[in-house]
Design a binder for these strands. Structure first.
Lengths: 168, 168
DNA sequence: TTCCGATCTCGGAATCATTCTTATTGGGCG
DNA sequence: CGCCCAATAAGAATGATTCCGAGATCGGAA
């Protein structure tokens, strides 16, 4: 399910434009990393991108791949699947609910909505597997992050008491 | 927003019942870990649960906390937030789409739905922060996992070629 | 085109979450 | 009450991701 070369060209142009606009350099490795993700139709992790790029630029380091990917994310040129903020989180609340996830600090707030609860799942999706549950994931910047209090970003280290855990 | 002691008692009873039914021992540490997660109203990670339990059972190891949590998950007594299957994944597809996530192997498939796209977000949620995007996350067992091909579970190691990455 | 400084990149070491290993402990049935 | 096996603790191991210092590059200015 590869994209057309037209499409590729377009995506690459967007990437280049984005970098340029942000005042970032258009290095060889960055471009190749962009190409790799542009042609991907799945949701690759850093390592598989690294592997792909390596075939063309054998010396790229995994670190560069990571750095470039976070940059693309920052620039809004790619999106991410799942929560990033790694660590596994558990939920004792088994009642149907939805989530608001802050893309910056990872804080996850529950919310309930009778209106959203009866999500109708297309049959096409049911063909993918046995559906257990469906919920809405709303992504955005939480209050604290948008008001610029402590910048926790993807770096889980600053203030030990970062707020990345309350909810409900 | 702590739960009532009534509620706590109920949840604990469910946990105990679940363990007993599964033929698992009701150890002191398991019960305390259950209590800790039962009283939580947020989405704690293993470490904060560990910290909490420690105040009552100073010797519990983090490992035991993890083991117990995965068991609770297996038994369906708690749920998880996000993808577990850690590694960060990226997506060059910026067109609005939704996800089907296999809770066993982590495979994520995109799907599109004109019907689901116009999700109406309650104002209450918008008060939590600036909403960037809203999508439906459907969880379940993918075809391959439900048909019992390779058991990858939470252990990312067996067959090097596990399929946890295709989509679309 | 050449040069220069600010970025970038590399490679390896460091860090963080999670899991494995092994000796030991302690539920709970007989 | 005592045994057996599942469960635990402690620490080492693993895997993903990030940091760091030294050297390489980009791209604007001369």
């Amino acid at each position: 399910m590869a994209i057309s070369s037209e499409e590729l060209k377009e995506r690459m142009a967007l990437f280049k434009e984005g970098f340029r606009r942000a005042g970032l350099k258009l290095t060889h490795q960055r471009l190749e990393i962009c190409r790799e993700i542009a042609i991907s139709c799945d949701h690759p992790d850093a390592e598989s991108i690294h592997k792909g790029v390596r075939q063309r630029v054998p010396s790229v380091s995994l670190d560069t791949v990571y750095r470039t990917l976070w940059q693309l994310l920052d620039l809004g040129l790619v999106s991410s699947v799942g929560s990033l903020h790694d660590r596994a989180r558990f939920d004792a609340n088994l009642v149907s609910h939805h989530h608001f996830v802050c893309t910056k600090c990872g804080a996850t707030h529950d919310f309930y909505s009778d209106e959203l609860d009866p999500l109708r799942i297309p049959d096409r999706v049911k063909a993918l597997g046995d559906v257990t549950r469906a919920q809405v994931e709303v992504r955005g910047l939480c209050r604290r992050c948008s008001s610029g209090v402590g910048d926790s970003r993807k770096t889980h280290k600053p203030e030990e008491d970062h707020h990345a855990k309350q909810a409900e």
